[in-house]
């Protein structure tokens, strides 16, 4: 069976100029799941906030100043 015919749109053609990374982005674009991006962005922001909130609590290992 021949490989399916693929006709990229203008935006995908632009993406495909960037090698493997571009192919991945074109895949996600064509896959029609771009509307999940807000979810991903919110998750990333929440993760960043969690990381910051945690880090402020941490202390260095126990050390003596003058020894």
């Amino acid at each position: 069976m021949p490989e399916p015919v693929y006709t990229p749109g203008p935006f995908e053609r632009l993406l495909l100029r960037f090698g493997t990374a571009g192919e991945l982005l074109a895949l996600l674009w064509r896959g029609g799941r771009w509307w999940m991006m807000p979810l991903v962005v919110v998750l990333l922001l929440a993760a960043g906030l969690l990381l910051f909130l945690q880090s402020v609590h941490y202390v260095a290992p126990f050390v003596y100043m003058v020894f």
């Binding site: 490989e3 493997t20 192919e23 991945l24 895949l27 996600l28 064509r30 799941r33 999940m36």
Partner: peptide, 17 residues
């Protein structure tokens, strides 16, 4: 991705997510 773009972009995008 280049190959899957032609064959099954939706299933592949789901897989990546």
């Amino acid at each position: 991705a280049g190959s899957l773009l032609r064959r099954a972009p939706r299933a592949a995008a789901d897989g990546v997510f």
